[in-house]
């Protein structure tokens, strides 16, 4: 397939903002699978991701980058979707490991989903089972490049194709009941 040239339709302000966003990514690591164990080494003194301006954040509201670190059972998928929708635009998603790409070793499991990008717009995948911190940092620098060039537009795709994503999500989850336990 030919690669379609994308037209960069960002204004000057958006370009400046994207420069800032790429240099200060706050991440939310949703530790679903094995992948979470590779994050502490990439945060602490051996690989030190803070030098790239990145850091862990406690809540989805504050975060820019959503790390889905491994396999997702349908039960966690629901939480992942809630979490993703709570994040403020622009937001980016990285899928960790083969489990998010094609199901990995859980490809025939009855309770996990196989392809993450049918449910959420993934900007970047890291292949491997499990990717080493070098690969993770490599992915982060790649994502920064993509943000600067305006290619990391998953959040726009999600807004434009919301119906399609919603359909897929409902098919896997069955009925979605939003139960708001704090305001009752």
């Amino acid at each position: 397939m030919d690669k379609i040239e994308k037209i960069d339709e960002r204004g000057v302000w958006e370009k400046i903002a994207d420069q800032l966003r790429s240099r200060s990514m706050w991440m939310l690591h949703y530790c679903t699978g094995c992948g979470a164990v590779e994050l502490p080494p990439s945060m602490t003194s051996r690989f030190d991701m803070e030098r790239l301006g990145m850091g862990p954040m406690a809540t989805p509201r504050q975060a820019d980058l959503f790390l889905v670190t491994g396999y997702l059972s349908t039960k966690t998928l629901r939480r992942v979707i809630y979490t993703y929708e709570k994040m403020a635009d622009p937001k980016y998603v990285i899928g960790f490991g083969s489990c998010t790409i094609n199901g990995g070793i859980y490809y025939d499991s009855y309770s996990t989903i196989n392809r993450l990008d049918q449910y959420l717009p993934v900007d970047l995948y890291i292949a491997g089972c499990m990717p080493r911190p070098e690969a993770i940092l490599n992915a982060f620098t790649k994502l920064m490049d993509m943000i600067r060039k305006g290619e990391a537009d998953g959040w726009k795709r999600y807004n434009e194709n919301y119906e399609w994503y919603k359909q897929n999500q409902l098919r896997s989850l069955g009925e979605v009941v939003v139960y708001d336990e704090f305001h009752e």
Partner: peptide, 24 residues
């Protein structure tokens, strides 16, 4: 902590980045 650490102007970037996002 024996890390390299962010740049000294990292907090300016963080501040202006948060201002550039679309919040709730």
């Amino acid at each position: 902590q024996r890390r390299y650490g962010p740049r000294w102007y990292q907090n300016f970037i963080d501040l202006f980045k948060t201002l550039s996002k679309h919040g709730y």
